[in-house]
Design a protein around this nucleic acid. Structure first.
Lengths: 201, 201, 201, 201
DNA sequence: TATGAATGAGCATTCATTCAT
DNA sequence: AATGAATGAATGCTCATTCAT
């Protein structure tokens, strides 16, 4: 009897996980398309196949679903150990692709969320998101340092600069004012700044 | 008789202008506080002292009011003729102040507007806004060139870099993740990039 | 002094008449186009060149203007003394033309008015309008009697029949279901009914 | 499990039908009372017991509800096979009753609807409504032909005449200018026209 | 007398959330 | 656990009418 219960519980647990994944996946699509503020529960309901009331079993609000979507995002992007130059180039290439395919980006939703919530409410969330971005970049730069390719000089500022430039370009992308040329030009400046701290260069 | 009419007409014209200014000023406060998407006609009505129907005499929608608010913005910011270094320093100082007092900025509203409207609808608007920002920056840099302080080398990319960095910092500001240190660090990098193209330096 | 006053009063009286005529003429156009219920003060204001407040000096409501428009209508249509057959044919021809150019008719407005007002309010108005129509028809039929062309037999019923058929055709016209063939067919039946009471026929 | 679902679905389907019937029935009352143009969603909401938002689950607009009400109407009025004279007399008797109890008629709403909509929008609707009326009448007349009571002579014109007279009387009814005497007089003329084409008469 | 800005009640419609089934 | 009908507050907007000028 007990065993059955356990099996059943595990089974239910799995079903629950599946349901949540289904909702989150559908919601991601919606948030990419409409940002955060304009998204209604109905939009998410329409995208996944779940009932109006059913979705409230798992999530109490659009906010909660959004937070879950963004939480998933910080689980991706695992860096592979590689040569510094390759890592950097690959990272910038991926960012370039993201910027040129911006309809699939959650940046707009992210902005609308952090812009619209009171300070206290976004703090933790923003730290996680920003921390994730910062870690991706600083991992690469620190690899440069550990491999003795660049000097450990103003790395924090430089990391921030990468963040700021990527966010700035993202804003241009959303304003539909971004071209490949602009991206290349800006990434060229970032590379220049790297070159300046290169050892033996 | 005719003269009286003319006087009366001019008087009315002035009253109309005043009312519009009153609405636009009130609306600016609201857009700074709530961005663009969350702003309702009611918000603007509450801020100025006008009736529900009265505001429609002057503006047909929140959109129209917003465009007028933003139009006013591009009329400010007239550069004074000055030494290149002073102009640059003063510009960065003003941006720093703006970034540190971000509750008074229309950047959030600007973002929400251009993010949410279809491409065709924002094009002209975004060009004006972006053009205004670009002109402020390129005016300064060109002054540097004409005064023979900096070389005319990659100025367009550099102008874009200023824009991108300012936008990126604005995003951080809205995410309430911006400190004075970060601003100083980023502006230091901008100055570094200027130094690199300085003549006799 | 007194004389001047009198002149001035007469002058003003004339101006007043002119203004009222201007309003009523403009309103007629509007009522033809939009019926009665959908007409707003703004519609009439837009059509004549008078101010929002100014129109209230002469008329307290759309209703009052409408009643004036309809009152004017009962002043038209003076029958010329003529042979019975000519009068009848000419009357039917005029009705046919009216039915085929129905965008210029006040019938819709008339219907919407009498349909929407409570019994007591329309009684007098409807009696005048209906009386005017009835008089046009009975004048013709009575001419037929006095000229010994038709017998004085069931003339009231026949008059009513003319009214009913004209109203019925008007409904079809407004429903955009009326063709010239239908009009000709129905008028043929009316002529048939006349023939039945013709003397020496 | 599946069976239960089916039962549940059927149950829901039935509930839905009931709700729609409830709304349509309530709306019919409102349309009879207020016509079409003056009816607001609120009127219908007040008449049935449903919430402001609830009614939009079933109907998107007053127009849609109206069309449903009118659609129901064309389902009624099934003619019973009968002797020609009985059918005709019974039909006229029913029309007389309708005309004398005009507060329960949808004629006003029908008029306001077809009068106010653009040509393209009403065409189909008006054809159905008019077709329904025409069919009722021509069915009777054709019975007279098939039973060799009347000649097949100008039947289309005669059918139109019945329609036109009924519509004309309806207009009088709405103008509250209709008496039993008038109805009897007009129906007498219709009967006269029938007599004229009677065989062996 | 004439103006047109101003008012506020009233409209259709949307949406997050609840709740009976 | 799951459904989707139901709720009612809130939104943008229109219009008859008033009123200071």
């Amino acid at each position: 009897m007990k065993e059955e219960d356990t099996i059943s519980r595990l089974h239910n647990e799995k079903q629950r996980k599946n349901k949540i994944r289904k909702i989150v996946d559908a919601a991601r699509v919606v948030f990419c398309r409409k940002g955060f503020l304009a998204v209604t529960m109905q939009d998410i309901i329409d995208e996944c196949s779940i009932s109006r009331g059913g979705i409230y079993i798992y999530f109490a609000s659009v906010d909660e679903i959004f937070l879950e979507v963004m939480k998933q995002r910080t689980k991706e992007d695992i860096q592979r150990p590689d040569a510094f130059e390759d890592m950097l180039a690959s990272y910038l290439a991926r960012q370039k692709m993201r910027l040129l395919n911006f309809e699939n980006s959650l940046f707009r939703a992210y902005c609308e969320y952090v812009f619209s919530k009171p300070k206290a409410a976004v703090e933790a969330f923003r730290d996680i998101q920003l921390g994730h971005l910062r870690k991706s970049i600083s991992t690469i730069l620190l690899r440069g340092v550990s491999r003795r390719v660049i000097r450990d000089e103003g790395l924090e500022q430089l990391t921030n600069h990468f963040i700021v430039v990527i966010d700035g370009l993202s804003v241009l992308a959303l304003a539909q004012a971004l071209t490949e040329e602009i991206i290349d030009g800006q990434f060229a400046i970032l590379n220049e700044l790297i070159n300046k701290i290169k050892i033996n260069a």
